[in-house]
Amino acid sequence: MDNGRSETMPGTVALFVACVADLAYPGPPRACVEVLEAMGVSVELPAGQTCCGQPALNSGYPRQATTLARRWLATFARYDAVVTTSGSCLSTVHHAYPRLLHGAEREQAVALAARSWEFTQFVTDFGQGLTLRLDAEVTYHDSCHMLRTLGERSSPRELLSRIDGLTLVEMTDSGVCCGFGGTFAVKLPDVSVAMADHKLAQAGRTGARYLVSADPACLMHLQGRADVTRAGIRTRHIAELVSDALVRTEVRA
C-alpha cells in the first residue's frame, strides 16, 4: 500500500455516517457496520457527528462550511481510524478542509485525512479474509470526488472482483458525472436530470441488473430519476452489495 494509510488493520474504527445517509439512506452505513464486524473490526458511532460541510461550501458559504469542518474534526480527532460510506464527504476532508482551515487546524485535518478510509479502501486493504459470494451482474459508477479528488478508481473494482459469482460489466463513461452536484441538483434541475439520463442510458446499455456506486448522494439522485423514467436498472450502494455477498462463517446471535 503506498497510500500513506496504516498497513495494519485498526481494531476499532469510528464510522462517519454522512448527512445523506442519515436523512434517507440508512442502508450503506448499516451494511458497512455488518461488513466491518464480519472482518472483526469494532465499529463506534461518535455521537456528535453531523455533516462534513460540503453542501454549504459548494453553495458559496465557506464560513458555514468551516463551522461544520471544525465540528467534524472535533468529533473524529480522538479516533485512530475513520471509515465512511460516502467517498465525496471524505474528499471534503482531504481537499476542502486544508483550504478552509489554517495552522494547527489544518495540520489536524491533514493528519485525520491520512487515517480515514472510504469503505471500499478499508475493505480492500484489510478484508482479504472475507468470503464473498453473490450471483449478480453489476456496473459501476465512479463518483466524481472519489475518483478525481481521492484518486480512487481501483479499490471498488478490486473489491467487486473478490465477490464470487459477480460480474462487473464496465459502462462507457463510468467516470463521467451523474449530474447530482449537491445544490446544483436543485439550482439547475433540468441540467442535473439530463445528466442523470445520460448516465442511466450508459448503465442500461450494459444490461447489468444493478448500478453500483460508493456514494449515497449519486445513488439518491440516479434512483430518483430511474423511478420517474422507469429505467430498468436498480441502484445499490457498494457496501450493501458487499454485505449481501457476505458468506457468514459463524452463527450470528
Binding site: 455516517v17 445523506v20 445517509a21 442519515d22 436523512l23 434517507a24 439512506y25 440508512p26 452505513p29 448499516r30 441538483a185 436543485v186 439550482k187 439547475l188 434541475p189 433540468d190 442535473s192 436530470v193 442523470a196 439518491m220 439522485h221 434512483q223 430518483g224 430519476r225 423511478d227 420517474v228
Partner: peptide, 17 residues
C-alpha cells in the same frame, strides 16, 4: 427543483440508521 424530475429520497428513513 428536485421533485420536477426525480422521485424523492426516502426521508421516512431519516434517523433510521
Amino acid at each position: 427543483g428536485w421533485a420536477a424530475g426525480r422521485a424523492l429520497p426516502a426521508t421516512r428513513d431519516a434517523g433510521a440508521f
